[in-house]
Design a protein around this nucleic acid. Structure first.
Lengths: 385, 385
DNA sequence: ATTAATTAGTTTTAGTCGTGAACTAATTAT
DNA sequence: ATAATTAGTTCACGACTAAAACTAATTAAT
């Protein structure tokens, strides 16, 4: 069913549009009016209300433009208003961060699944550390606008439960949302790893229109699909996951039931098993020197990734692919070659070139990325409740 | 940029929501209120306005329910208000239809590309025939709310131009939207074949929530992706097209640059070339009798289609696949087997079963399907302009 | 220096929307 | 007959955005 619109929704929508414009830049009321299409007077009303609430603040004048007219007064999101926490659950490393509502990271810390013998122990340890650091930084949990948790799938989004991600028993079937909500009394969001990072890339690294597939390479190979900044989730939030796209129908049987899945070839561990090397960075370095083994590894990696990605490009009608994760080091070695492959092997590329680029975020951003759904929720609903 | 919401948009949105509910069923005001979440009083205001405009009409009382309370007064879309035309351009057969705004087909007719030597000849012939039939049926073009044209891609949606679909030179680079708009003075919409049929299926055959891939098999193999009835288009309107998904990386080189594309195996002509038979219906009949050649053909067809569809299921996180076109006859032979294949070869199926079903529409619906975008536009914007 | 032109931002007034409460209308169960 | 229940309408109201007229602050021209 379509979404109902009443006057209250009008207000929250327009307020969100303005906050969204201000996510990572400072803008004047006049600029906001031009960008959003809202009347100047409406922008004044809305922004002044948000200033009196403490969500926005004036941030001085813009530099003089050498044009006639009054100088613009810049507005920005007031980081002091509050903060959000993000927790990234990962098979090897759990990371957590607190960012203010303008997206600025205030602190972060790490924990390791291997150090815990039970879910309860892990969770209570993270919560304790989080609480201590919050105090340490002079913050008060009453100002916490939300918590985001990102985790490998499968997840039950509606119930907020981590189901049974492969090789990740620590949080199996744990209702993390309910747990954290009753602990902190603020809204908690569970989100797929890849989706969280894709949103972080969009809002805080480089905002792009059009159709983007954000590909994450880690223990598995995941993905998230962004259309003009909006996640396309599919039926159960798994759209964009390309780990089980077959790149060889006669390949080995995968646990998913298919043969020759991308994950059987292109994860770091699969690559190490097949070619027997120690460090990918070393391979990337050797590749530059024309080392023949490194060339084989890279060629194999490019071909398998490209094979799966061509399918995704055709089905999603993509504008660009962003590569994130394991192969971050000298990533252009891959992206240049994958881009070339895709633009000679897909129907789409007859209409427009598909771009393949490395992600602009470091692995350290994963916990801040987890906070993004909580920030989004705050931006959308702050005025009503 | 996000969509701006003002009071006028509120009105058109809520009006559209109500019309959308009434597309193919009659409902009372009370039912509309419950379905949409709009207050009873709002539904009264909106529906009474549309009744006075002639878009809706009261359609008698509902059967008595044996429950206490006043009997419901049913509302329906008033077919007499106006009509839309749909033109389906196809390599073998051009079809056109006029439906009233309730989606009822008033008349349709056919023309054949082979009979025309130029674009102008084809277009003017279709327009003449359309005008004659409109008069014949006592209609007046002043009541035409819009025209939809569906065509094989690639298309330029924004400019309303048919680009250069393979093997379809008759309309190459023809600006059909501009032409028809100046001819009729009503809004004209150009839409991909598969998208138009997918929308028709959703609105007028069987409405389904969730994530659906509508697959069309004809000269080529196309597709359209529906998420809760909304088309996901991708960057240039080509999302869902699975004709060039590779089902054999070592297969023959395709003109798209890839190897072993689905279209090289699973179209009717490809199948005829490979197995040398005359009629697919005959194969389907023989298959029931255990004929070994028919079994080979069906097995091949099932495997190639399934191979590509598993990829689509994984990437789109689909709930169901609808099969439309060439293999309509005894289609369950295919759908049952493809469904079984998919549900043993995709990651998604661990979370939920994927359904594969034949389309409920006959090939004759293609022209009515072309009219759907015009009807949608009318439903959305009728009150403002 | 003064004035006109230009851009930014505010205030005031007006018009429209959906809502909720109180109402009428029509039906069934008792 | 009367109460209970459901459908549909009327009307006063609050909330929102917009347009127009305003003030504020700057540059360019004279």
């Amino acid at each position: 069913m379509n979404k109902l619109h009443n006057v209250a929704k009008l207000k929250t929508d327009n307020r969100y549009i303005i906050l969204d414009c201000l996510r990572h830049i400072r803008l004047s009321r006049a600029e906001l009016s031009r960008m959003t299409g809202l009347a100047k007077s409406s922008v004044t009303t809305i922004t002044n209300e948000m200033i009196s609430q403490g969500i926005l603040c004036e941030a001085g004048l813009a530099e003089k433009s050498n044009k006639a007219g009054r100088t613009r007064v810049l507005l920005e999101i007031n980081g002091d208003f509050g903060f959000a926490a993000g927790i990234n659950l990962h098979r090897k490393r759990i990371s957590a961060a607190v960012t203010d509502i303008s997206g600025e990271i205030i602190f972060d810390f790490y924990a390791y699944p291997a150090d815990f013998s039970s879910t309860e122990e892990a969770v209570s340890c993270i919560i304790e550390e989080l609480n201590r650091k919050i105090k340490e930084n002079g913050l008060d949990t009453s100002r916490m606008v939300g918590i985001g948790v990102s985790s490998p799938g499968p997840l039950d989004y509606e119930k907020g439960i981590i189901l049974e991600p492969p090789n990740f028993p620590l949080f199996n079937n744990f209702a993390i949302v309910r747990y954290l909500e009753s602990e902190y009394g603020c809204p908690v969001f569970l989100e797929n790893n890849a989706v969280a990072s894709a949103l972080f890339e969009h809002y805080y690294v480089s905002r792009q229109e059009g159709s983007t597939l954000f590909v994450t390479v880690s223990d598995g190979i995941g993905g998230a699909l962004l259309q003009n900044g909006k996640i396309y989730r599919g039926s159960h939030g798994a759209a964009g996951e390309l780990g089980h796209i077959s790149v060889d129908p006669e390949g080995e049987l995968c646990e998913c039931g298919n043969r020759g899945c991308l994950e059987q070839y292109a994860t770091l561990s699969a690559l190490k098993n097949r070619f027997g090397f120690e460090s990918y960075n070393e391979i990337a370095d050797l590749f530059g020197n024309g080392d023949s083994k490194a060339e084989k590894v890279i060629e194999f990696l490019v071909n398998t990734l490209s094979g799966a990605l061509v399918g995704a490009v055709n089905l999603f009608d993509l504008d660009r692919i962003i590569l994130y994760g394991e192969y971050n080091y000298k990533c252009e070695i891959l992206t240049e070659r994958i881009e070339k492959y895709i633009n000679t092997h897909s129907v789409i590329c007859k209409a427009h070139r598909v771009e393949v680029v490395p992600s602009g975020q470091s692995p350290e951003c994963a916990s801040a990325a987890a906070a993004v759904p909580a920030l989004n929720n705050f931006f959308r609903y702050n005025t009503t409740h």
